[in-house]
């Protein structure tokens, strides 16, 4: 009886492996097919002759390395700041004695469910005007022989992506980290505090190390949400050398024609680094999250 039950459970897991891993396999085949095979062929068909040139074309026409670098840079900086800023805020809300903690939390919660598209127009307006409000859009400084002049702008720089990405990811990050930090027994901090340690020190050497698991969760969430983001990127970035990976995909989709195989190849190239990194880290991610994500 128990064996049968176990068998059924394993069968279930096996089926799930097939269904969840299938897209990768499908994509790989897709990327090696010709347009005709993709449009006309049946679902399970293999390419008659693998069309490796798809990869060559995708690599060349898609500015792969440039876009990859930009994606990595934007995502990396965003993740760093999301973790830093939101863990500090979450800690302040969870532990500090101040009147407005809950108000701040509510303000953050409000923004958690706002779709990006709703804020595009105001964001464009803000980015356009911040430099001129700060007087930096056409900055002259003249003092004897010192002559400084520059024009700072946000639109069409990576900053115009990183800033809203951070801002949009912080609410959920604060929510998760705050939930965790509230559950840390406060005896540890209290004794450290009595011993004369500053809040900064407590935060850095006690709170951050035990918060690694939820920080991992936040990392994954942030990464997933940003890596494939296209709408903001397309709206705020115009220069070829600043564009991110999702652009490559769309750059094949033009007005009057489509190279499906190339798109597939580019998608494989785009997904590759993510999958490699994910599997290198997966043990750490699941293990890391284990350490204390549940109320201890």
């Amino acid at each position: 009886m128990k064996k049968i039950k176990k068998g059924i459970v394993f069968l279930l897991f096996a089926i799930l492996i097939v269904t969840q891993i299938y897209p990768l396999f499908w994509l790989l085949l897709y990327s090696l097919k010709t347009n005709e095979e993709i449009l006309g062929g049946s679902f399970f068909s293999f390419p008659a002759a693998p069309k490796w040139t798809n990869y060559k074309e995708a690599y060349e026409a898609g500015h792969y390395l440039q876009y990859l670098f930009n994606s990595v840079f934007v995502t990396g900086v965003t993740m760093l700041f999301v973790i830093l800023l939101s863990s500090m805020t979450a800690y302040a809300i969870a532990r500090f004695k101040w009147k407005y903690g809950q108000v701040v939390m509510t303000v953050f919660l409000l923004g958690m469910m706002i779709p990006l598209q709703a804020t595009l127009l105001p964001l464009m307006f803000i980015f356009k005007n911040i430099p001129s409000v700060l007087g930096l859009d056409n900055f002259h400084f003249h003092f004897y022989f010192i002559n400084i002049h520059f024009a700072w702008k946000i639109i069409n720089t990576h900053l115009s992506l990183i800033l809203p990405y951070i801002a949009f990811q912080t609410p959920i990050a604060v929510f998760i980290l705050n939930g965790f930090m509230r559950s840390i027994p406060h005896e540890i901090e209290e004794s450290a505090y009595m011993d004369g340690a500053s809040v900064y020190r407590i935060f850095r050497s006690i709170i951050i190390p035990i918060s690694v698991p939820p920080v991992m969760t936040v990392c994954i969430l942030t990464f997933i949400n940003i890596w494939n983001e296209y709408i903001l990127a397309a709206t705020f970035i115009s220069s070829e050398k600043l564009k991110t990976l999702p652009f490559g995909v769309y750059s094949f989709v033009s007005q009057y024609s489509v190279n499906y195989g190339d798109i597939g190849a580019f998608l494989v190239l785009g997904a590759l680094p993510v999958i490699v990194i994910y599997f290198l880290l997966s043990e750490k991610i699941t293990k890391g999250m284990v350490a204390g994500a549940v109320k201890g």
């Binding site: 840079f73 900086v77 520059f150 990576h158 990183i162 220069s239 050398k241």
Partner: peptide, 18 residues
């Protein structure tokens, strides 16, 4: 650092406008 990095990766467009 991040601002500088942002700046450097697109310095050509900034310097052009300036």
């Amino acid at each position: 650092l991040s601002l500088a990095a942002c700046g450097s990766s697109n310095n050509s467009s900034t310097s052009n406008t300036s």
